[in-house]
Amino acid sequence: MAEQWTHWGGGWLPPQPPKPGVISLRPLKSGDILGGAFAALGRYGSRLVAAMLPGQLGALLLLAAAVGGALALGVRPVTVLVPAAALATLLTCALAATLTAAVLREAVLGRPAAVRTLLRAARPRLAAVLGTQLLVLAALAGPGAAVLAAGLPPLLAAATLPVALGLGVLFVLAPTAAAYEGLGPVAALRRSAGLVRGAWWRTFGITALAAVIAAGAAYAVQLPFAFAGALSLVPAIDGGLAHATFAALGGMVAQTLLLCFPQLAAGLVYVDRRIRREGLAAELTRESEAA
């Protein structure tokens, strides 16, 4: 197909790349990635919050059941609360990564996505994403754990932190690869390492900045909920219950921001790397035109 040029303002400009969704289908700058993550969050954020809600409520029920079981058995609650909290956190993180990958495809192509659609797309990939995240955690904690298991001074375990950071960035795209491409955990780690190779520092900078932004936004989101609860803006609810209710709601929204925004940024890094190395832009263009 012959290349088309357009006349604008008295000059001739090359054709602009298509932009069916939150990003233009071309190699992305860092600002494009963060801007696209903000745009995706603005467009699909409410549906992400709603889709995350069942998992967050399930995590709370798991913690409540663990504490209740411990009290019934006469066991100190903290002995079961810590592993239950770790399990709940892992499941919530896996759900957030899987839902974010489902949003990513729709956001890049500019298609609508209902909550039911996101949950339906996430369900079959949840186990693979969870397995991927567990492998990443094992890789990050492995060197330090090996040092401690050998009985060496804890200071040497701290010296392995640069290794953990290096591996963490190398595997940061693995959850997206597992969900987006339907890969298994080991294949997803290999895929991420292959895509990040040659762009480690850029990937680190973008994902670290996204995490900092998400932490600030999550804190800011919690404040109005806390104030609403403290002022008991719902007269039908007593003060203590109102405070707890609003705090829980604020915590759920903040958790969605904290987990999903960095994952959206990482997902767009994944798209950018595939555009640069594999010609993904042409495939996405064909898919958007066929819709």
Rank of each mutant, 00 (worst) to 15 (best):
T132R: 00
G11M: 04
R26E: 09
Y219T: 13
V271M: 04
R190C: 14
Q56W: 09
R190L: 15
T207H: 07
W8R: 10
A66R: 06
M52L: 11
W201V: 15
V75S: 04
A187V: 08
L109M: 08
R26K: 01
Q133S: 10
R277A: 15
A88M: 03
E3R: 12
Q16N: 10
A214N: 08
G205N: 06
R286T: 12
E278K: 00
L73R: 01
G144R: 00
A127W: 15
A97W: 05
A187T: 13
R120P: 14
P18E: 11
I206N: 02
P18A: 12
G21T: 02
V49M: 08
K19F: 14
F227W: 07
V196Y: 10
V103C: 03
L87K: 03
L258E: 15
A210S: 09
Y44I: 05
G110N: 05
A107M: 02
F225L: 06
S232L: 06
L48W: 11
G142H: 07
L152G: 02
T203P: 07
A290H: 13
P20R: 06
A281Y: 04
V49Y: 12
L195F: 14
L152E: 08
V221R: 00
D32I: 00
L126C: 13
A128K: 06
L268E: 03
G142F: 11
V212R: 04
V163Y: 10
A266Q: 01
L231Y: 15
A114C: 10
L195M: 12
A150E: 03
G205L: 11
S288C: 07
S288A: 15
L61R: 02
R286G: 15
G55V: 04
D32M: 02
V136H: 04
D238H: 10
P175S: 12
A281L: 00
L148Q: 05
P153L: 12
V82E: 06
Y219V: 14
R43M: 03
V129K: 01
S30M: 14
F261P: 06
A244I: 05
A291V: 06
L109Q: 05
V82G: 09
P15C: 02
L63N: 09
P185M: 13
A84W: 03
